[in-house]
Amino acid sequence: MKYRLGELFCGPGGLAYGAKIADIGNGDKIIHAWANDFDRDTCDTYTHNICPDNPESVYCEDVRKFNLTKLTPIDGLAFGFPCNDFSVVGKHKGFEGTYGPLYTYGVRALKIYQPKWFLAENVGGIKSANQGKAFKKILSDMKDVGYTIVPNFYKFEEYGIPQARHRIIVIGIRNDLALKYHYKVPSTEMYKNVDNSAKNAINNPPIPANAFNNERTHQTKNVVERLKYIKPGQNAFNADIPENLKLHVKGAKISQIYRRLDPNKPSYTVTGSGGGGTHMYHWSEPRALTNREKARLQTFPDNFEFMGSKESVRKQVGMAVPVRGAQIIFEAILKTFAGIDYPSQEAHL
């Protein structure tokens, strides 16, 4: 069975690549049908890596002006709708913000195409947006267009991913099929002994000298000196730094500023940030990580080439879903529909 996948807010292709490589050993596959995003570089990256022979299937348009009715039939829909207004960082605008209502376009696509299943992804902060009303409304809307849903709070480091990245992912199965097919949250048990340390992800195997997107970021002399006093796992505010190198920012207690990775643990969350000491910093070398090293923490293969400027690539890598995490969830969906049992655990939020 081949499941045709449509995507809204597709990003650079973390979900899509995870779907592409999902394999449960019976020949069932998820294949690309179409995708939409509004950023040109992001769309170019997606096209280059996911569907180079079918570029016209990637629509680079603002979803608010996009004709959702012109697309081809699909069996599955994925939408990692923009999380800006639901993130725990910044102001909680929720439904009042520019991005808050964008999930409704995913719901609209479900109503139009009635795929067998869907995957929707967002940050954990969505649970508390608008005093919890936003999340209830989103789940209610998904049910109202005919889906039985399983929302779960995934901690990707528990699935062997070398990064503490926490996301809510909702899997929905169309009601007429949900009588027979019951999606279950994959168990984390089999990943307990996986080496998901940042050091292992970045160093093993060594990144090839000619790897894509591996340009170094220039560090000023002051930054290099400051980093020498920051131990692995520390940041600019909890390290013992000489007075002349300290950051004098009133009220700033953001733990990610000049934070060095702990080589023996999963990295902290990869984001698109870069200015003012918000790059991720190497545990032993006095420098920021390259985009390729960050892509490793996001479990992209080294032959996945991001398009655009270094700054654009940094943002793309930061917005993506970890490839291997997506693969694990898509394989659980495939097994669900193939009638193959798999180790599972209770869903939780």
Rank of each mutant, 00 (worst) to 15 (best):
R167K: 12
E158R: 09
K199L: 14
I169S: 11
A178E: 08
K199G: 12
V150H: 01
S197Q: 08
T188P: 13
D144N: 14
I161V: 10
S197F: 06
I149V: 04
R165D: 01
Y183S: 11
I173L: 05
D176S: 10
F212T: 03
R174K: 14
T217A: 10
Y181T: 01
R216V: 03
Y191I: 02
Y154G: 10
Y183T: 12
Y147M: 07
N152D: 15
V194I: 13
A211E: 01
I138W: 13
Y154P: 04
I169W: 05
T148M: 01
A198V: 15
V194Y: 10
V145A: 10
S140V: 04
S187T: 13
Y147F: 15
P162C: 04
Y154A: 12
P151W: 01
N213R: 12
A201M: 13
R167H: 05
V145W: 13
R167F: 02
K143P: 09
S187R: 09
I138Y: 15
T188E: 13
A209G: 10
G160N: 03
Y183E: 14
A178N: 08
L139A: 07
Y147W: 11
L177F: 11
G160C: 04
N175R: 14
A209I: 13
L177I: 08
R174H: 12
P151T: 01
V145I: 13
K199M: 13
R174P: 00
P186H: 11
P186F: 10
A198T: 15
A164P: 10
D195G: 00
A211L: 00
S140Y: 15
K180A: 07
Q163K: 10
N193D: 09
Y159I: 00
P151V: 02
F156G: 09
P208M: 02
I138Q: 05
V194L: 09
I161C: 02
H182C: 14
P162Y: 03
H166S: 12
D144F: 03
I169K: 13
P208L: 03
M190N: 10
I202D: 07
F153T: 13
N200W: 12
I168D: 03
I173R: 02
P186L: 12
G160W: 05
P208G: 06
K137L: 12
K136M: 06
I168C: 05
E189L: 06
E215W: 00
H182R: 15
D195N: 08
T148K: 06
Y191D: 06
M142G: 04
I207Q: 06
Y183Q: 11
A209N: 13
M190K: 12
V150G: 02
N213G: 01
N210G: 14
L139M: 12
A178R: 05
R174V: 05
F212A: 15
R165M: 01
E189P: 04
P208Q: 05
K184D: 11
K199C: 14
R167T: 02
I207H: 07
E215P: 00
N196T: 08
G172N: 04
A209D: 15
A198H: 12
M142P: 05
V145Q: 10
G172C: 05
M190H: 07
I161H: 03
R167I: 04
T217I: 11
N200G: 11
H182F: 09
P206A: 08
L139E: 11
I171P: 00
K192Q: 06
Y181K: 04
I149E: 01
S187M: 08
I149Q: 00
